[in-house]
Design a protein around this nucleic acid. Sequence first.
DNA 1: GTTGAACTTGAACGAGCGTTCGACCCTCAT
DNA 2: ATGAGGGTCGAACGCTCGTTCAAGTTCAAC
Lengths: 207, 207
Amino acid sequence: MTTSNRDQKLDGLLAAAAKVFADRGYHRTSMRDLARASGVSLAGVYYYVQSKDELLFLIQQRNFEAVLAGARDTLAGVTDPVERLARFVDNHLDYFASHMAEMKVLSHEAGALSGDFLQRVNDMKHDYTRMLMDILADLETAHGPAHLNRRVAAYSLFGMMNWIYNWYDPLGDVGVELLSQNICRLFLGGYVGLPVSDAVIPHASAG
Amino acid sequence: MTTSNRDQKLDGLLAAAAKVFADRGYHRTSMRDLARASGVSLAGVYYYVQSKDELLFLIQQRNFEAVLAGARDTLAGVTDPVERLARFVDNHLDYFASHMAEMKVLSHEAGALSGDFLQRVNDMKHDYTRMLMDILADLETAHGPAHLNRRVAAYSLFGMMNWIYNWYDPLGDVGVELLSQNICRLFLGGYVGLPVSDAVIPHASAG
DNA sequence: GTTGAACTTGAACGAGCGTTCGACCCTCAT
DNA sequence: ATGAGGGTCGAACGCTCGTTCAAGTTCAAC
């Protein structure tokens, strides 16, 4: 199964669009900006995509699907709740760090979609949030009830992870592994009062 | 010193603008939307404000200044690092929860400013980040070196706090005090491994 | 009753927006 | 050589944008 020429071009268009959207924001970016950035004429963009909205949707959908699939994959067969959380966080940050533009668009332009597009992305978000909430429930079962509201804890973790587009530089002196470990420890230490050691939090990419 | 009629009207305009910006985003909002929401004619808006940019800047500046002043105020004379952190977090979330629209604009539309306006807001952000970093340094002195990168920890805390505009409802069943306590515990437990009890984290508004 | 400043407005400006359309290239099976 | 179809484009459509401006209204001070 080879990827068609059209699919390849669409991928390139989406990649270019993600960069411009991340840089200037969705609404500030014009289709003419997009055309310039992707090396196609203005009209040519519409051969690959039906509308500016659909362009944004495709970026969000494809990348969120990749994150979701990665999470399901790395969690398969793992039962220890601590390791499950570590892998969940690691998958999220790993993908984020290697797709900063796309993930900034996913995190920052959540409100720019509407109608059916918004619905479909929100459904994915709901599934993903549920995954984390379930892990938190397992964590509490295994390590005693948390003294924190589970919903607050879940969204706080998402906050830590998704906020990185505001400050994190994957090429800086803080590597992704360190970032992932740090955030995982920060959360686990605060949520179930676990002592934080390398042994407790294995790096998921080893699995 | 009474507030002039003009200042009052400007305040109302900014409040209305913050609501619309928070709802629809800065770039998607037109000056005609703003005029409608604030009950002034389109041209009338320009009597109070020089440009759409300045409108956004004023919202960000005024509210950030309030947060900064609140932080300096609540930290004055307090030396215990744990209480300093608790007060810092509490001030931030308290103001956030009671000014959701304005703070969403401050958090979400950071990249919409440019030139001198951007510079001045960034300077405030720098000061504010420095305040937190200093508290973290004190925390480490008092409770042993953290096993976490200080910068990662600081931005993770900002992430937890600023992300709330994506999910938190101040009128829902999670009160601000609970939210503030939870986030503070989450952070302290993970950062310096402190046991989390009501005694350790006093509620700042009591001071 | 006149003045002048504070305030408000409808109407317009030029520019840029997302999108469409018909014409044009290719390539390749017939 | 021909025609079909995937790919590309310049030019234009109607619309909305941020901003301006001259002409108004209100009203306290003289």
